[in-house]
């Protein structure tokens, strides 16, 4: 499973925008929690490693949510996907 994380790292390094990298980091974080449980099972001490995995999964969620909120707060640009159609009656007029 560690070998499979390497293509995801490629996307972290390469990804054209910063949001790509954050998506990849979120994925690596989730898989790290799984890897911790697998290692715990390997050493026959699964009870202890499960605590680590739970803590890391929770903190990974907080981290990627914080990164998403950071990107959201600057200048919301509302672009039109269909420039020909009429705007919807309830759309905010930005």
């Amino acid at each position: 499973m560690f070998v499979l994380m390497l293509p995801v790292m490629y996307r972290v390094v390469l990804g054209p925008t910063a949001l790509d990298r954050i998506v990849a980091i979120n994925m690596i974080g989730t898989k790290t929690a799984v890897l911790l449980v697998v290692i715990g099972q390997f050493f026959d001490q699964a009870g202890m490693f499960v605590d680590f995995a739970l803590a890391y999964a929770l903190l990974n969620f907080v981290g990627s949510l914080a990164a998403a909120r950071y990107f959201k707060r600057t200048r919301p640009i509302h672009h039109d996907l269909n420039p020909d159609s009429q705007p919807e009656p309830g759309a905010p007029a930005i």
Binding site: M48, D51, A55, L59, V62, A66
Partner: peptide, 23 residues
Amino acid sequence: HSPGGGFQGGVMLGASYILIALA
């Protein structure tokens, strides 16, 4: 009894308040 203690528990509790602020 298991890895943990004051600093780790404090960090996670602080993270929970940060999550309230994020949401």
